[in-house]
């Protein structure tokens, strides 16, 4: 079970004045850590500029999350493509615009 760190201290990481971003999921406003670094897609010698948008959320804020759910961050609607639960109270969501 998550201890004090996850239950209390970890929430500080999501502070909107620091690294946190507001997101809308299932009609609720939640806090996430949003990262969208450059990620080239390459295959067959074809290379395409892209990004890999990722949101880290408190698992309790996205209970019941499933693939293709929508989450809105910075006014951009993303689909949840992958859900990586760490089992300690955090979930990493791999996002897609399609």
């Amino acid at each position: 079970m998550p201890g004090d760190f996850v239950q209390n201290d970890l929430a500080a990481l999501f502070n909107l004045n620091d690294m946190g971003s507001a997101a809308t999921y299932a009609g609720n406003t939640i806090k996430v850590l949003f990262i969208s670094g450059y990620a080239a897609a390459a295959s067959l010698g074809i290379e395409v500029e892209s990004a890999r948008p990722t949101a880290i959320a408190m698992a309790k804020d996205i209970a019941g999350v499933k693939h293709r759910d929508q989450i809105t961050i910075n006014s951009v609607v993303y689909y949840i493509a992958e859900i990586h639960n760490d089992g300690l109270g955090l979930a990493t969501l791999i996002l897609s615009k399609d």
Binding site: A41, L44, I46, V48, S96
Partner: peptide, 16 residues
């Protein structure tokens, strides 16, 4: 001919 699908921020498809 050959197709590939890649997945990053968007669905990306290519062919050779």
């Amino acid at each position: 001919d050959e197709m590939r699908v890649m997945k990053e921020e968007r669905f990306i498809a290519g062919a050779l």
